[in-house]
């Protein structure tokens, strides 16, 4: 059965794509919401954050990382809704690879996020975001952002299975926002109280945002702390650790449904 993981996962991805085709408005809303946040923070709250150079250059990498992290909610909601549908029983009573339901979800969400990144980068460009790094650096940045999304995706799948009911997703959503904002997405840690700034630097979102800023060739905002100095290492290590923890947990939990 396990020989069918990829085929079956692709079938499940196609299922999600078919859902998109039937709900184009939902897809567009999903793409527009982060753009709206970006514009809001860029124009309404922008400026005066103690950042050298244009705020938009600082903000956009942070917003990209934040959007990837917030993907956790979308995944979690989609998985809980799916698990509460009757069709899951049919999948589970069929001789398909049991992980395909989850892996298919992860493919579809990654596709959606890649599309979302493209749109945000386009909008960022339109409002004057400068990319001073090379093309290779840009690819590297996109790769790191998607890696963060991938980690959040599996955390989301696992949390969805722990929560079980769509109603409980709200509780997680409430927690996701402060965690997202306790990062350097909008402001430098130096502008925060010392203890808070230190915590913020260890946030996976901060690590990815800082690394993307570095790749973009934005004047260095990192302070002397270990986490800030090694942001690139953390931007790779954090997601890998999260995936290493949540992927097996999620898959084994899915297999144990019904025990």
């Amino acid at each position: 059965m396990s020989g069918y993981v990829l085929t079956d996962s692709w079938t499940m991805t196609r299922r999600e794509l078919a859902h998109w085709a039937r709900q184009p408005v939902q897809v567009v809303v999903g793409l527009v919401f982060p753009v709206m946040l970006l514009l809001m923070f860029g124009y309404l709250i922008g400026g005066g954050r103690g950042v050298e150079g244009a705020y938009v250059d600082f903000l956009i990498p942070g917003m990209l990382a934040l959007t990837m992290a917030f993907g956790l909610e979308a995944t979690m909601l989609a998985v809980t809704q799916d698990l509460n549908k009757g069709v899951i029983d049919r999948f589970r009573s069929m001789p398909m690879a049991s992980s395909a339901v989850l892996v298919g979800r992860s493919f579809a969400d990654m596709l959606q996020s890649a599309l979302g990144l493209l749109v945000m980068i386009g909008v960022g460009h339109a409002i004057g975001w400068r990319w001073n790094g090379g093309f290779g650096a840009l690819l590297g940045a996109v790769g790191l952002l998607l890696l963060l999304r991938f980690a959040m995706l599996w955390a989301g799948i696992h949390l969805a299975m722990v929560a079980g009911k769509p109603e409980l997703v709200q509780a997680v959503q409430i927690l996701v926002w402060p965690v997202g904002f306790l990062s350097n997405a909008f402001a430098t840690p130096e502008s925060m109280p010392g203890w808070l700034g230190a915590a913020v630097e260890w946030n996976p979102i901060s690590a990815t945002a800082t690394t993307v800023r570095d790749l973009a060739g934005i004047p260095d905002v990192a302070t002397g702390s270990w986490a800030a100095e090694h942001a690139a290492l953390l931007a790779v290590a954090w997601p890998l650790v999260l995936v290493a923890v949540f992927f097996p947990l999620a898959v084994s939990r899915f297999r144990r449904l019904g025990r």
Binding site: D8, K85, R90, M94, A100
Partner: peptide, 28 residues
């Protein structure tokens, strides 16, 4: 085995043919 549960075990967002084709693929 085949299973017809108490609640419709099909994808309600999709069409009938889309459902059956998807299940057929999953039966390899």
């Amino acid at each position: 085995i085949g299973l017809l549960g108490q609640h419709a075990a099909v994808d309600e967002e999709l069409g009938g043919r889309q459902n059956l084709e998807m299940f057929g693929r999953l039966y390899h």
